[in-house]
């Protein structure tokens, strides 16, 4: 966090900023939002720095450009690293937050931070996520004083976005390289590969790190379609929170102790938790049920 005193001289000049993301598609690792900003008067120089869409650059070139822009006093940058645990958790909430919303919120957070630092942002260029016009309206609504340009392939159209894409991509790559797994089981390795679902190294890593009960390490985005084929090999998990939606419609029934051979119940339906059905309100509200077979 830069303090007021550390603000560059050009901060009070009209400034432009680019925002781009890295790691949206991968099945594992963080998603990173990066931004890069500078005075509008520096725009010409920026174009000469050979930033290009980070995906078209070799890793060493990206690293080199990142080091250059970090050293450049006419440029400011920031990142938002979104932990895969957070991505999974948000996308698997009862009220699911989709990846577009998460992305939008991250970008909004970056703009807010830069404005709060005291940088006079007048124009912000953003690579689109979802419908460009809706996204632009959302951003303009939040920051009426800023002009937003939301476009497809903004990372190859605007140097300031190309710069942001380098910041994001390098940060994501380094974060994955240095990732410390939460899990402490033996026989785990860090050969994640790129994290993209099609990468053979990533596929092999997923296959080797599957766990019957826990699924995958928290590095993996459980909500990704790529995980689905593996999930059939796992122990089935039924959630109380899912059950409420499905209760009326389909036959996903709960299990109770009886299914584990603890009791012998005459009742046909299995239930996860006692419902207290048929008892007085005191027991219903507390989900208490008398167990006569034990």
């Amino acid at each position: 966090m830069a303090s007021e005193a550390a603000l560059p001289k050009w901060a009070s000049e009209p400034c432009i900023m680019g925002i781009d993301e890295a790691g949206r598609g991968p099945v594992l690792g963080p998603m990173v939002y990066g931004c890069l900003y500078c005075a509008r008067s520096y725009q010409m120089t920026l174009s000469s720095l050979n930033f290009a869409d980070s995906k078209t650059l070799k890793e060493e070139k990206r690293e080199e450009l990142f080091e250059n822009l970090k050293a450049d006093e006419s440029i400011g940058w920031a990142v938002d690293i979104i932990d895969p645990k957070e991505l999974s958790a948000k996308m698997l909430k009862k009220n699911k937050i989709n990846l577009n919303e998460i992305s939008h919120e991250s970008a909004i957070g970056l703009v807010a931070n830069v404005l709060n630092m005291g940088i006079l942002l007048t124009e912000v260029y953003v690579d689109t996520v979802g419908d460009a016009e809706k996204y632009r309206t959302k951003l303009s609504g939040r920051f009426p004083a800023v002009k937003f340009v939301v476009a497809k392939k903004a990372d190859s159209l605007y140097p300031v976005v190309s710069g942001a894409s380098i910041v994001a991509k390098v940060t994501r790559d380094r974060a994955l390289q240095e990732w410390v797994l939460d899990e402490t089981a033996e026989n785990m390795n860090r050969n994640f590969g790129s994290g993209y679902p099609g990468d053979p190294e990533t596929k092999a890593w997923l296959k080797n790190h599957i766990h019957t009960v826990f699924g995958f390490p928290t590095l993996v985005r459980f909500s990704w379609g790529t995980c689905t084929p593996y999930i059939k090999d796992l122990a089935e998990v039924l959630w109380e929170s899912d059950k409420m939606d499905e209760d009326s419609s389909c036959g996903k029934k709960q299990m109770k102790l009886s299914s584990f051979g603890v009791t012998k119940s005459k009742r046909k339906s299995e239930e996860i938790e006692s419902s207290g059905k048929g008892h007085c309100k005191f027991f219903q509200a507390r989900k208490l049920e008398q167990l006569t077979y034990f």
Binding site: A235, E236, V237, L238, I272
Partner: peptide, 10 residues
């Protein structure tokens, strides 16, 4: 808040 259909050491 869920049932894990697994019985055994883990």
């Amino acid at each position: 808040p869920c049932v894990i259909k697994y019985d055994g050491p883990c």
